[in-house]
Design a protein around this nucleic acid. Structure first.
Lengths: 133, 133
DNA sequence: AGATTATCAGTAATAATTACTATTATTAAA
DNA sequence: TTTAATAATAGTAATTATTACTGATAATCT
């Protein structure tokens, strides 16, 4: 596997992206720095990096396009229904989960895809403020 | 909203489907009973039923096509990496999860999208048998 | 430097989903 | 029950997301 400036920039831009982007969103951002980069290159490298477990793909119910995540360690995603923000959370919080699944269902968990939708701290606070006024 | 035979059959066929099918898979099965049904009708009704919360869409990382689930009550999916089988599990097993997320992360969970990949009971047993032989 | 070959840009092809339109079928009212 | 209104359909076209292909470019090895 050879080094390429494009691949490096794709990975770096994904890491710097504020939200987990689609290939298309990443492509638009990349074009600012590498105007001649092609969408195919973005896809090819995202797939390659995913295979190599350098990055990962998000669980996305409904949405038709794949979103990518620069983190490769297992973690879960919290999506705020109010502001739409996607937050990362460590899986440490759910350490007991695998044990429960194994004991109660006889299923040995290897990988987690956890997406929780709800209200984030910020939106919860604003909600409180509004209702008490 | 008017009754239609097509919609009824779509829902029934989804319920009877052994695995959580894509729109295309459902379409192929439906054609056996309603040879003139169109793929657009399948999509339109699956979307409609999803909006009405009669059915739901699965969390599917990577895979490019949406899979549908006749269950509308919240539950999680266990996917066996060995045999590919998709099993349903109640969320009761993870009752503590929401509390942990709220206390430790300040996030109020409303909806769960949980997909766990691993080895199912059957494949685990076969594995044991093989290794002890 | 020169040979080898992974990677690229650009474009074409495929797959999944949605939109459009004329026709059909369900419902409600005369 | 006919009739009118309109939701839903079949069939097709269009759109969107992703992958495949090809000749040119650039990284690496000798």
């Amino acid at each position: 596997m050879k080094y390429s400036r494009q691949r490096e920039m794709i990975l770096q831009t994904l890491k710097d992206f504020p939200v987990h982007p689609t290939a298309e969103e990443l492509y638009q951002e990349l074009r600012k720095k590498l105007p001649r980069i092609s969408l195919g290159t973005v896809y090819r490298n995202l797939n390659l990096l995913t295979e190599l477990k350098v990055i990962s793909q998000l669980e996305t119910s409904g949405s038709t396009s794949i979103r990518y995540d620069a983190r490769n360690d297992e973690h879960c995603h919290l999506i705020c229904s109010t502001c739409g923000k996607v937050m990362d959370a460590s899986l440490d919080h759910f350490a007991s989960l695998d044990t429960i699944v194994l004991e109660q269902l006889g299923f040995a968990v290897l990988e987690h895809g956890i997406v929780l939708k709800g209200t984030c701290q910020t939106c919860l606070r604003q909600n409180e403020t509004h209702t008490t006024q």
